[in-house]
Amino acid sequence: MFDGYTTSELMSIFAMQGFAGLSLFSVFVLMALGLAIIFGQMGVINMAHGEFMILGAYTTYLTSNLFQTYLPSLFGGYFFVAMILAFVFCAALGAFVEWAMVRHLYRRPLDTLLATWGLSLILQQAYRSIFGAREVGVDLPEWMMGAFQVTDLVELPINGLFVMIIALSIALAVYLLMFRSGWGRKVRAVVQNRPMAEAVGINSAAVDRATFALGCGIAGIAGSAFTMIGSTGPSSGQAYIVDTFLVVVFGGAQSLIGTIVSAFSISQAQSTMEFFLSGSMAKVLTLLVVVGILMLRPEGLMALKVRR
């Protein structure tokens, strides 16, 4: 696989693909954070998580067009507005889905999986009917164009660096919310012992709805980040849902640090192997390695220690 490359060329390739993988890492982190909150904290397998990401992407696309048409002088800051709107719309839809469907299926994982898979098909068809089957893209503000020249052969795209900063900032915010706030203590209390949490006055139904909405809102931010590195189509979310579940399970379902480490490892492995192999072969090899590690450590890389 490495035949024909000198040592200096291989080092440059690894560095170049490593920087290229940072954008993929950012999307994986944001998608996996939302899924880890829903799956890790609530035990709900949300197969429509990718469609929430695409809702955020389409929201960013519409916001970009609105700013270009009506507020061209403020176009440079549209992404921040789009990110907020993507979070709000996706969180609102997530709260409605939890109230209308998911709350009736708690502790029934197979039914939840099938119901959310059906929801994903409904959302895909809705996007196809509203936006059309063709993929769409957004125009980047001028300050996001270009790249930092790291070496003669390696460049770091400004938009990729910006998306990575957003991903790490959201990860820090989620950590502070879950482990340094009163609401986070309520979530962890409900997860650890729901009857006891309800006995001390915690509204577990409200906590469940807010948790599901938060996870979907973070997926919407992931959709905004996704528009920076690729085009958006009705079924684009399906290309990321399997990788996102892989990141969550590999890192440990209830470990935010494990989710970040897992996202970085998988994104870097896929980005590097795609240079030397085909994209499908890179995914297969990554999956085989992850499955092999999970056979030795089924609880994930950084599972939380609990008393037994």
Rank of each mutant, 00 (worst) to 15 (best):
S255D: 11
M228E: 14
L294A: 04
M1R: 15
T63V: 04
F245P: 03
R107A: 15
I165G: 10
R134K: 14
F226M: 10
M273R: 15
V191W: 09
T286P: 09
T112K: 05
A253W: 04
I257R: 13
V102Y: 10
Y70C: 07
F250C: 03
L301R: 07
V306P: 05
S204C: 06
T116P: 05
M83K: 02
G160N: 05
I130Q: 10
A225M: 11
S73E: 11
T286I: 03
A219Q: 10
F87A: 06
E98Q: 09
A219N: 00
G258F: 01
G223W: 00
A197F: 11
A57K: 03
E9I: 07
A199I: 10
A167R: 00
L30K: 04
K305T: 00
N203H: 15
G118R: 09
D208M: 12
E198H: 09
V261R: 00
E198N: 12
A210M: 15
A303S: 06
T69Y: 10
A15R: 01
T227D: 11
V247N: 05
V284W: 01
M145K: 12
A171Y: 07
A15Q: 09
I84Q: 00
I229G: 14
G217M: 06
A115Q: 06
R128V: 09
D3S: 15
V291K: 01
R128T: 11
G300M: 10
F275Y: 14
L33V: 03
F39M: 11
I218V: 08
T59S: 12
L172A: 12
M16S: 13
G43E: 14
V136L: 03
V191L: 15
A82E: 00
T259G: 05
V284S: 11
A36I: 12
F162S: 10
E51F: 06
A57C: 01
S169T: 11
V284D: 12
F245L: 08
K305M: 05
L93K: 01
E98W: 00
V289D: 02
L176F: 03
G4H: 12
V306N: 04
V248K: 02
R307V: 04
G223H: 10
F28V: 07
M47T: 13
I293H: 02
E9P: 13
I37H: 06
A48M: 14
G56D: 14
R128Y: 12
I266G: 09
A147Q: 13
P298V: 05
S255E: 08
L285Q: 07
M53Y: 12
L85Y: 01
F79K: 01
F250D: 00
A239V: 14
M228K: 10
L33H: 13
L153Y: 14
V97T: 04
S235C: 07
I37Y: 05
F19Q: 03
D111H: 15
L105E: 12
L288P: 11
A219V: 05
L24T: 14
A36G: 08
K283Q: 11
R307W: 02
P72M: 08
